[in-house]
Amino acid sequence: MVDRSAYLARIGYQGSLVPSMETLRGLHLSHVLTVPFENLDIQLGRPIALEPAALFEKIVTSRRGGYCFELNGLFALLLEDLGFAITRLAARVLYGAEGVRPRSHQVLLVHLDGKRWIVDVGFGGQGLREPLPCVAGLEHRQGPDQFRLTTDERGEHVLQCRLDEAWTNLYSFTLEPWLPVDYQFANYYHSHAPESLFVQRLICTMPTLDGRKTFIGNLLKVRGIDGLQELHVTSEVEREQLLQEHFGLIINDRLRF
Protein backbone atom coordinates (compact mmCIF):
# COMPACT_ATOMS: atom_id res chain seq x y z
CA MET A 1 0.00 0.00 0.00
CA VAL A 2 1.08 3.57 -0.70
CA ASP A 3 -0.22 6.89 0.54
CA ARG A 4 -2.32 7.42 -2.55
CA SER A 5 -3.31 11.02 -1.87
CA ALA A 6 0.27 12.14 -1.23
CA TYR A 7 1.57 10.35 -4.34
CA LEU A 8 -1.14 11.86 -6.56
CA ALA A 9 -0.42 15.30 -5.12
CA ARG A 10 3.30 14.80 -5.86
CA ILE A 11 2.61 14.22 -9.56
CA GLY A 12 -0.18 16.79 -9.75
CA TYR A 13 -2.82 14.31 -10.87
CA GLN A 14 -6.48 15.19 -10.21
CA GLY A 15 -8.31 12.96 -12.68
CA SER A 16 -10.32 9.77 -12.40
CA LEU A 17 -9.00 6.87 -10.33
CA VAL A 18 -11.08 4.19 -12.04
CA PRO A 19 -8.75 1.60 -13.66
CA SER A 20 -9.19 2.71 -17.27
CA MET A 21 -7.09 3.77 -20.22
CA GLU A 22 -7.89 7.41 -19.52
CA THR A 23 -6.64 7.07 -15.94
CA LEU A 24 -3.51 5.17 -16.94
CA ARG A 25 -2.61 7.71 -19.60
CA GLY A 26 -3.21 10.63 -17.25
CA LEU A 27 -1.13 9.12 -14.45
CA HIS A 28 1.73 8.25 -16.80
CA LEU A 29 1.93 11.71 -18.39
CA SER A 30 1.59 13.50 -15.05
CA HIS A 31 4.40 11.38 -13.61
CA VAL A 32 6.98 11.95 -16.34
CA LEU A 33 6.26 15.70 -16.47
CA THR A 34 6.82 16.19 -12.73
CA VAL A 35 9.25 13.52 -11.47
CA PRO A 36 12.69 13.66 -13.12
CA PHE A 37 14.91 10.77 -14.05
CA GLU A 38 18.05 11.45 -12.00
CA ASN A 39 21.04 9.78 -10.37
CA LEU A 40 22.07 12.46 -7.86
CA ASP A 41 22.19 10.04 -4.90
CA ILE A 42 24.68 7.86 -6.76
CA GLN A 43 26.82 10.93 -7.43
CA LEU A 44 26.63 11.76 -3.73
CA GLY A 45 27.69 8.25 -2.73
CA ARG A 46 24.34 7.36 -1.21
CA PRO A 47 22.92 3.81 -1.51
CA ILE A 48 19.86 3.22 -3.69
CA ALA A 49 17.22 1.41 -1.64
CA LEU A 50 14.31 -0.27 -3.44
CA GLU A 51 12.07 -1.04 -0.46
CA PRO A 52 8.62 0.58 -0.88
CA ALA A 53 8.98 2.84 2.16
CA ALA A 54 12.35 4.12 0.95
CA LEU A 55 11.02 4.79 -2.54
CA PHE A 56 8.04 6.68 -1.19
CA GLU A 57 10.13 8.78 1.18
CA LYS A 58 12.55 9.77 -1.56
CA ILE A 59 10.20 10.41 -4.49
CA VAL A 60 7.06 11.65 -2.73
CA THR A 61 8.07 13.03 0.67
CA SER A 62 11.44 14.48 -0.37
CA ARG A 63 10.17 15.38 -3.87
CA ARG A 64 13.11 13.75 -5.60
CA GLY A 65 13.39 11.66 -8.74
CA GLY A 66 15.30 8.48 -9.38
CA TYR A 67 16.11 5.95 -12.06
CA CYS A 68 14.12 3.03 -13.46
CA PHE A 69 14.14 0.72 -10.44
CA GLU A 70 12.92 3.55 -8.24
CA LEU A 71 10.47 5.32 -10.55
CA ASN A 72 8.85 2.27 -12.12
CA GLY A 73 9.10 0.41 -8.82
CA LEU A 74 7.00 2.98 -6.99
CA PHE A 75 4.68 3.62 -9.94
CA ALA A 76 3.89 -0.10 -10.04
CA LEU A 77 2.76 0.06 -6.42
CA LEU A 78 0.47 3.00 -7.17
CA LEU A 79 -1.09 1.22 -10.15
CA GLU A 80 -1.66 -1.93 -8.13
CA ASP A 81 -3.20 0.14 -5.32
CA LEU A 82 -5.64 1.60 -7.85
CA GLY A 83 -6.62 -1.85 -9.12
CA PHE A 84 -4.55 -2.16 -12.30
CA ALA A 85 -3.15 -5.58 -13.23
CA ILE A 86 0.57 -5.31 -13.98
CA THR A 87 3.53 -7.50 -14.80
CA ARG A 88 7.05 -6.36 -14.00
CA LEU A 89 9.51 -6.91 -16.87
CA ALA A 90 13.21 -6.42 -17.57
CA ALA A 91 14.63 -4.81 -20.70
CA ARG A 92 17.99 -4.80 -22.44
CA VAL A 93 19.04 -1.19 -23.10
CA LEU A 94 20.08 -0.59 -26.72
CA TYR A 95 20.13 3.21 -26.84
CA GLY A 96 23.73 4.40 -26.86
CA ALA A 97 24.95 0.87 -26.17
CA GLU A 98 28.09 -0.73 -27.51
CA GLY A 99 27.88 -4.50 -27.73
CA VAL A 100 25.23 -6.57 -26.00
CA ARG A 101 24.11 -5.46 -22.54
CA PRO A 102 22.35 -7.64 -19.97
CA ARG A 103 18.71 -7.02 -19.10
CA SER A 104 18.94 -4.28 -16.51
CA HIS A 105 16.07 -1.84 -17.09
CA GLN A 106 12.75 -2.16 -15.29
CA VAL A 107 9.62 -1.71 -17.40
CA LEU A 108 5.96 -2.49 -16.71
CA LEU A 109 3.26 -4.29 -18.66
CA VAL A 110 -0.32 -3.28 -17.81
CA HIS A 111 -3.23 -5.58 -18.67
CA LEU A 112 -6.41 -3.61 -19.34
CA ASP A 113 -9.66 -4.57 -21.08
CA GLY A 114 -8.06 -7.52 -22.84
CA LYS A 115 -5.13 -5.45 -24.14
CA ARG A 116 -1.53 -5.02 -23.03
CA TRP A 117 0.25 -1.70 -22.62
CA ILE A 118 3.93 -0.88 -22.12
CA VAL A 119 4.27 1.54 -19.20
CA ASP A 120 7.60 3.16 -18.37
CA VAL A 121 8.07 6.34 -16.32
CA GLY A 122 11.74 5.56 -15.68
CA PHE A 123 13.71 5.56 -18.93
CA GLY A 124 16.00 8.57 -19.09
CA GLY A 125 16.80 8.79 -22.80
CA GLN A 126 13.82 9.68 -24.99
CA GLY A 127 11.45 7.62 -22.84
CA LEU A 128 7.72 7.16 -23.21
CA ARG A 129 5.37 9.97 -22.26
CA GLU A 130 2.27 7.77 -22.24
CA PRO A 131 1.47 4.05 -22.26
CA LEU A 132 2.26 2.32 -25.55
CA PRO A 133 0.14 -0.51 -26.98
CA CYS A 134 2.10 -3.75 -26.90
CA VAL A 135 1.48 -4.29 -30.63
CA ALA A 136 4.32 -4.57 -33.14
CA GLY A 137 4.35 -2.12 -36.03
CA LEU A 138 1.89 0.40 -34.61
CA GLU A 139 3.33 3.94 -34.68
CA HIS A 140 2.25 6.11 -31.78
CA ARG A 141 2.60 9.88 -31.54
CA GLN A 142 3.13 11.25 -28.01
CA GLY A 143 3.50 15.02 -28.00
CA PRO A 144 6.64 15.87 -30.00
CA ASP A 145 7.82 12.23 -29.89
CA GLN A 146 6.94 9.19 -31.96
CA PHE A 147 7.32 5.55 -30.85
CA ARG A 148 6.72 2.05 -32.16
CA LEU A 149 7.40 -1.58 -31.24
CA THR A 150 9.16 -4.02 -33.53
CA THR A 151 10.64 -7.48 -33.02
CA ASP A 152 14.26 -8.54 -33.40
CA GLU A 153 15.92 -11.72 -34.62
CA ARG A 154 15.59 -13.28 -31.14
CA GLY A 155 11.85 -12.60 -31.09
CA GLU A 156 12.18 -9.90 -28.43
CA HIS A 157 10.03 -6.78 -28.49
CA VAL A 158 12.06 -3.66 -29.38
CA LEU A 159 10.92 -0.17 -28.40
CA GLN A 160 11.96 2.46 -30.93
CA CYS A 161 11.78 6.27 -31.00
CA ARG A 162 11.98 8.37 -34.16
CA LEU A 163 15.06 10.61 -33.89
CA ASP A 164 16.51 12.73 -36.69
CA GLU A 165 14.14 11.16 -39.24
CA ALA A 166 15.26 7.62 -38.37
CA TRP A 167 13.94 4.92 -36.02
CA THR A 168 16.33 4.41 -33.10
CA ASN A 169 16.31 1.37 -30.82
CA LEU A 170 15.76 2.22 -27.14
CA TYR A 171 15.51 -1.21 -25.51
CA SER A 172 14.36 -4.78 -26.07
CA PHE A 173 12.41 -7.05 -23.73
CA THR A 174 10.46 -10.27 -23.37
CA LEU A 175 7.23 -10.79 -21.48
CA GLU A 176 8.82 -13.01 -18.81
CA PRO A 177 7.65 -11.72 -15.40
CA TRP A 178 10.17 -10.43 -12.87
CA LEU A 179 9.72 -9.99 -9.14
CA PRO A 180 10.80 -6.83 -7.28
CA VAL A 181 13.70 -8.76 -5.72
CA ASP A 182 15.00 -9.64 -9.20
CA TYR A 183 16.14 -6.05 -9.78
CA GLN A 184 18.49 -5.99 -6.79
CA PHE A 185 21.58 -7.18 -8.66
CA ALA A 186 21.14 -4.75 -11.57
CA ASN A 187 20.47 -1.93 -9.11
CA TYR A 188 23.70 -2.66 -7.26
CA TYR A 189 25.69 -2.79 -10.50
CA HIS A 190 24.30 0.48 -11.85
CA SER A 191 24.89 2.31 -8.57
CA HIS A 192 28.39 0.95 -7.82
CA ALA A 193 30.27 -0.29 -10.90
CA PRO A 194 32.94 2.11 -12.26
CA GLU A 195 31.79 1.38 -15.83
CA SER A 196 28.19 2.36 -15.03
CA LEU A 197 27.12 5.63 -16.67
CA PHE A 198 25.26 6.52 -13.47
CA VAL A 199 28.51 6.31 -11.49
CA GLN A 200 30.55 8.15 -14.10
CA ARG A 201 28.48 11.30 -14.48
CA LEU A 202 25.50 13.27 -13.24
CA ILE A 203 22.35 12.61 -15.28
CA CYS A 204 19.03 14.40 -14.87
CA THR A 205 16.31 14.60 -17.51
CA MET A 206 12.58 14.96 -17.98
CA PRO A 207 10.24 15.74 -20.87
CA THR A 208 8.29 18.96 -21.19
CA LEU A 209 5.04 19.44 -23.09
CA ASP A 210 6.95 20.46 -26.21
CA GLY A 211 10.44 19.05 -25.71
CA ARG A 212 12.90 17.82 -23.11
CA LYS A 213 15.37 19.09 -20.51
CA THR A 214 18.60 17.15 -20.05
CA PHE A 215 21.44 17.81 -17.62
CA ILE A 216 24.53 15.64 -18.11
CA GLY A 217 27.71 16.48 -16.24
CA ASN A 218 28.02 20.24 -16.48
CA LEU A 219 25.87 20.77 -19.58
CA LEU A 220 22.18 21.62 -19.48
CA LYS A 221 20.21 21.23 -22.73
CA VAL A 222 16.67 22.57 -23.08
CA ARG A 223 14.88 21.57 -26.29
CA GLY A 224 11.50 23.05 -27.20
CA ILE A 225 9.54 24.68 -29.98
CA ASP A 226 12.14 27.46 -30.11
CA GLY A 227 14.95 25.01 -30.77
CA LEU A 228 17.85 23.93 -28.56
CA GLN A 229 19.43 26.01 -25.83
CA GLU A 230 22.64 24.91 -24.08
CA LEU A 231 24.19 26.17 -20.87
CA HIS A 232 27.61 25.13 -19.61
CA VAL A 233 27.80 25.19 -15.82
CA THR A 234 30.94 26.56 -14.18
CA SER A 235 30.33 26.04 -10.45
CA GLU A 236 28.61 23.78 -7.92
CA VAL A 237 26.31 26.60 -6.84
CA GLU A 238 25.19 27.29 -10.41
CA ARG A 239 24.51 23.62 -11.07
CA GLU A 240 22.43 23.24 -7.92
CA GLN A 241 20.46 26.38 -8.81
CA LEU A 242 19.66 24.98 -12.26
CA LEU A 243 18.65 21.60 -10.83
CA GLN A 244 16.14 23.38 -8.63
CA GLU A 245 14.92 25.76 -11.33
CA HIS A 246 14.47 23.22 -14.11
CA PHE A 247 13.81 19.97 -12.24
CA GLY A 248 12.50 21.05 -8.83
CA LEU A 249 15.35 19.27 -7.05
CA ILE A 250 16.85 20.51 -3.80
CA ILE A 251 20.01 18.70 -2.71
CA ASN A 252 21.38 19.19 0.79
CA ASP A 253 24.88 17.80 0.16
CA ARG A 254 27.44 19.24 -2.24
CA LEU A 255 27.72 17.46 -5.58
CA ARG A 256 31.16 16.76 -7.02
CA PHE A 257 32.10 19.28 -9.68
Results as ranks from 00 to 15, higher is better:
86 I>F: 07
91 A>H: 01
96 G>R: 10
105 H>M: 14
98 E>M: 01
86 I>S: 04
109 L>T: 02
97 A>K: 12
85 A>Q: 15
108 L>Y: 04
97 A>T: 07
98 E>S: 10
103 R>L: 11
93 V>G: 01
102 P>R: 12
86 I>K: 00
106 Q>A: 07
87 T>H: 12
95 Y>F: 15
101 R>G: 06
96 G>M: 11
108 L>M: 10
107 V>Y: 00
84 F>M: 13
104 S>I: 02
92 R>F: 11
103 R>G: 03
93 V>W: 00
84 F>R: 04
94 L>C: 12
96 G>P: 00
103 R>A: 09
86 I>G: 05
111 H>M: 15
83 G>N: 03
99 G>V: 07
97 A>I: 03
87 T>W: 06
89 L>W: 09
109 L>I: 15
104 S>Q: 11
97 A>C: 13
89 L>C: 08
111 H>Y: 06
109 L>Q: 15
87 T>Y: 11
96 G>Q: 03
104 S>H: 07
104 S>T: 06
101 R>A: 09
102 P>V: 03
114 G>M: 02
102 P>D: 10
93 V>E: 00
90 A>R: 04
107 V>F: 08
94 L>D: 05
113 D>K: 06
89 L>Y: 07
111 H>L: 15
99 G>E: 13
98 E>F: 00
99 G>F: 02
106 Q>M: 10
92 R>T: 11
92 R>W: 10
96 G>T: 15
83 G>T: 13
112 L>N: 07
91 A>I: 04
94 L>F: 11
103 R>K: 15
114 G>R: 06
102 P>W: 14
112 L>Q: 07
92 R>L: 07
112 L>Y: 12
89 L>I: 06
109 L>N: 06
113 D>F: 09
105 H>D: 03
109 L>C: 15
88 R>A: 08
113 D>Q: 12
91 A>S: 08
95 Y>N: 06
103 R>V: 00
99 G>T: 07
104 S>V: 05
110 V>Y: 03
112 L>A: 03
95 Y>Q: 13
83 G>L: 08
96 G>C: 03
106 Q>L: 14
101 R>W: 15
88 R>C: 10
109 L>S: 04
93 V>K: 02
89 L>A: 05
109 L>Y: 09
105 H>P: 06
87 T>Q: 13
113 D>L: 02
85 A>R: 15
97 A>W: 14
105 H>L: 15
104 S>A: 07
88 R>S: 10
98 E>P: 01
95 Y>A: 13
99 G>P: 15
93 V>N: 03
95 Y>L: 12
85 A>I: 00
113 D>I: 06
110 V>R: 13
83 G>Y: 05
105 H>W: 08
112 L>F: 05
112 L>S: 07
108 L>H: 01
97 A>D: 02
84 F>D: 07
86 I>D: 00
97 A>E: 14
98 E>G: 05
92 R>A: 01
102 P>A: 11
87 T>E: 08
90 A>P: 00
88 R>P: 00
